[in-house]
């Protein structure tokens, strides 16, 4: 994956928990433009480990003068978002990946419905601009607990087809009303907590929507957990995965060659064959099927962890 070095030119608090970061080329050159819903991976070096988290781009996709992301601080996480909140300052140079997109709009759609929960608003911010430029009909529904927490409010334009649902104010999102009666050829996209993604999928299924018109992205960072050990089959090497490290990060720190892209359990790139498993794999990804999880013959190292006596990977 192509890497870019960029300079941090703005940091702004959008809410108590969410900060916006703006990145530009250090020499002022144009950055590659991108498509609505794309993300970048940000490298966060800490000691021997390079932590890499993926964040949706929220800026104008056709504007190469800068990239912007919004990061919610997760104090229970591995430390990636805390690093962004506490360590990254204006003027710093950081390394990011070129944009990649696992949540693109289906531009064949007659209409697009975008449903965001909390920080899940981020991929839609670039999609909104693309939909405006492509002059496609859409509506956006943004649900948040309270106005103070709704970091996206500062970034959303006022428009008739943009609806904000603040549950604290009693304006809960009625998915049935949103999805019912939409014209043939409508596509729906959801980003937010698993519960919201499931609720939209269930509601769409109840209304007879075809699965291929229902899209979602659950962008989550790998969860921390208990430390565990993993054996690399080719070398016999045993690697310890620390509590605040993902398996992928531990393998990278040990210089084991492994491919990746999203680092959020969504793209399938780091899928690895398990050659021995005496214990239980904690599958945290969105890639493997229920059957594949139960078999314990394959693992997504970017998200998943292990509890037990021995885990050996075909690497």
């Amino acid at each position: 994956m192509k890497k870019l070095v960029v300079k941090v030119t703005e940091v702004e608090a959008l809410s108590p928990l969410v900060k916006r970061f703006r990145f530009e080329d250090p020499k002022g050159a144009a950055l590659p433009v991108f498509s609505g819903g794309a993300h970048i991976t940000v490298e966060m070096p800490e000691g021997e480990t390079i932590r890499r988290n993926s964040y949706s781009l929220i800026s104008d996709p056709y504007d190469g003068s800068a990239y912007e992301i919004a990061v919610r601080r997760e104090d229970m996480g591995r430390g990636g978002s805390r690093y962004m909140h506490t360590r990254v300052q204006v003027g710093d140079e950081i390394t990011i990946s070129a944009p990649a997109n696992l949540f693109q709009l289906d531009l064949r759609a007659r209409k697009h419905i975008l449903i965001a929960g909390g920080i899940g608003i981020t991929p839609f911010l670039s999609q909104l601009r693309q939909l405006d430029m492509e002059q496609k009909p859409f509506e956006l529904h943004y649900a948040a607990r309270s106005r103070a927490e709704a970091a996206g409010l500062k970034l959303l334009p006022e428009a008739a087809h943009i609806h904000v649902h603040i549950s604290e104010e009693g304006a809960r999102m009625d998915l049935g009303a949103i999805l019912d009666g939409q014209p043939l050829g409508t596509h729906v996209y959801t980003c937010g907590p698993d519960g919201l993604i499931k609720a939209v999928a269930d509601q769409a299924a109840r209304l007879g929507w075809p699965k291929t018109a229902v899209h979602s992205e659950a962008f989550i960072a790998p969860p921390p957990g208990e430390p565990f050990e993993v054996v690399v089959r080719s070398s016999g090497q045993t690697i310890t995965v620390k509590a605040d490290q993902s398996l992928l990060e531990a393998l990278e720190a040990a210089k084991v060659e492994i491919d990746y892209s999203c680092r959020g359990g969504a793209c399938g790139r780091c899928q690895t064959h398990v050659t021995a498993c005496d214990g239980r794999i904690e599958h945290n990804d969105h890639w493997l099927s229920e059957d594949e999880r139960a078999e314990q013959k394959t693992i997504m190292p970017c998200m998943s962890r292990f509890k037990g006596a021995r885990l050996e990977l075909d690497l």
């Binding site: 043939l184 007879g208 075809p210 699965k211």
Partner: peptide, 8 residues
């Protein structure tokens, strides 16, 4: 062509 996905 009218927008109906094949799975419908």
């Amino acid at each position: 062509a009218a927008g109906l996905p094949l799975d419908a």
